[in-house]
Design a binder for these strands. Sequence first.
DNA 1: CTAGGGTTAG
Length: 783
Amino acid sequence: MNLMATTWKMIVGNSPLCSFACNKKEPLEPQRIKKFGIEHLRFRNDFKLLDKIAQRINVSVSGSGMTRPVNGSEMGVIEDTDFELIGGIIYDACKEQGVNAMPGLLCWEWNLTDKKNIVDQLSYCSREGNLGVGKIFHALVIKTGFCGDKIVDTALVNMYAKCGEIGSAVKVFDGMLSIDVASYNCLISGFLSNEMFDEALGFFAQMGVWEIRPNHYTFSIMISGCGSVFAINEGIQLHAHVVKLQHVVNGVVANSLLTMYCKFGMMENAQSLFQSLPKKNVVSWTAIISGLYQQRALEKALLQFYLMRQHGFEPNEYTLTMALSSCGGIKQFDNGYALHAQLVKKGMASGAFVGTAIVDMYTELGQMDNAEKQLQEMGTIASAVSWNALIAGFVHNNNIEAALKAFHKMVLNYVPIDEYTFSNALKACSSFPSLSTSRQIHCWVIKASSERNLHVASSLIEAYGKCGSLDDAEKVFDQISMPDIVSWNCLVKAYSQHGYFEKAVSLFKKMVVEGVKPSGSTFLAVLSACSHCGLVQEGKEFFKSMLMNYSVIPEETHYCCMVDLFSRSGHLEDALDFIKRLPIKPTASIWRPLLAGCRCHCDLQLGEYVANRILELEPDDASVHVTLSNMYFDVGRLGDLVKQRELMKLKEVKKEPGYSWIEVKNKTYKFFSGDTTHPQTPEVYDLLEKLINDIRISTPHTELGLCNEGKLLYHSEKLAVCFGLLNLPAGTPIRIFKNIRVCSDCHTTMKHISKITKHEILLRDNYRFHHFKQGCCSCGDFW
DNA sequence: CTAGGGTTAG
């Protein structure tokens, strides 16, 4: 309450809403109402309907005005009317509207002249959003002459407002003879639920003109509206009023304030308000939990959830779902299981929302078996969202094959495919990467007219990029009407990954011209292009301009990229200097490219130094020993080599999710994949050594790259073993070349592979070979 | 006539 207690006086003083009797805002003119895009002609249909009813019961409809007092002659009509017959006709009309099940709504015993009944029916329509039936009842209201009655008219306003026909609501409201706070509330609430905050505020301010005082209903409505549209100033002002008028004691008003602050992300205000509530209920607790959850303060959300239970409040489906998701997000396995168990016990686990949340939790915990099992148990309840969650889970957990299988199964089960599905499936294609599958999905996307979705389009660009089909990627990009930063980044990245430095830069310039501000990812792509093309000077300039010209703060990944840029090009001292000047403490990831550079440029002394820095930070990194042992081999220090090999074998290879499999001579080997810095098991290294004699792999970068750690494996459509792929992003397309000569020293594939036409050739005319020349010239084996 | 609210994608 601190905020309120101290500030409301100040706020109230100059609030435009401060006095309800003072009218600073002009009341809404008809012109203004028209400006909202409101149609006033909707009632025509009702007359038609009314005429239809009238014809059938053979009475004339005398009234033409909608909202005027009932006159004597109309009363006469009512007296003559066979209301049972009208009831029957309404029943038929409802059926014609396709309304079958309206339990308790229409029955013969009703007295249709009973005002309360009609109001009940109208509020039923409001709740259900049933405009068609609502209009029929409006017709009945006119027929029976109830229009003009304040309560009936208010019910009509409410009905139209809730059913989304706000123009008709305004029309009825305007025609009302006397207006009270309830009619205003209905209309304001209608504006807010139709996302017309300004109009709601206008009418709220207008109440004062008629000397109608807003009540606690009004404040609840308005406060909730402020929360939805992020109207912070108005919200705080309303809070001040509420304090002044002592409405806070009302639980509903307090809860709406609480929710509003949660939506604003002002959790401190929300918490203090929450603490001050004398009577908390489930809504109050849910608001706080949901607020924390939305702020991604998952631990706090979970804590709040436990507190809620401690205070004896029974969690419902919603609170349980948020608790579940929180467990997934912060990897709380045990609590996750416990919550799942509770949901099963309560019989909620197979509901669509909760069930999906369970699937999602297990994918976040990396337990894909459980996720799949949960989906199976949901059976036909499983929605597209549930399937999407599963597929996304497989993609995140690097099981691409399973992701595509799940996608296939989803199709077989006639689950409707949506944009999320496309995006996920395409992501799987790019990790594979499989051009043919990407194309198939693209066809599907076109058939479903989903190309306009930015997520889908970006995924397509990425997939084509990863599959090496840059023309397709560009075509997809060109078809986007308003590309956003992500779509731009996808295209820049695609060109960058394939070594098209100039193209990446020209795209970068183009996006700036078109008013899209480059992001961290954009710079990462451009810097990476510089690094792979050996363009040290250009890279340095881009790095400088990041912060200076585009105010993008460099992150660890950018630093890695810069170290890589220096190291690849042999500027090892510059790399070291760069690391030492960093504003952050250098991480292992920042040191690693320098170690690779030392290996490639044969600087053993610096290599040892860097290796020690990495091992200080990540003592279990076996790959450091691999590199060192190779460097000792190069200089003939076999004793040191053996030592490193021993150390390497001693160190446990981390057991992380994300493997690839490779089949060689009917035996399956398991590899870590997806992370180029992951060390493989010693068994894998042995295998790779054997394979090196049979298969040569090339990527767009191997020709340029640092070479021959032989530790990287990518899962392509066929087997792929990569050499020299340090710092290559996961999923970079690779092709397999058989019997290609490589540089005997650094295993760099040689330029003349482009002559081997029967295999797919990745080398392009404008491809740069800076590194290749340096590396292989220095080893003297330049053919 | 009023307050709360969960799951998926670039």
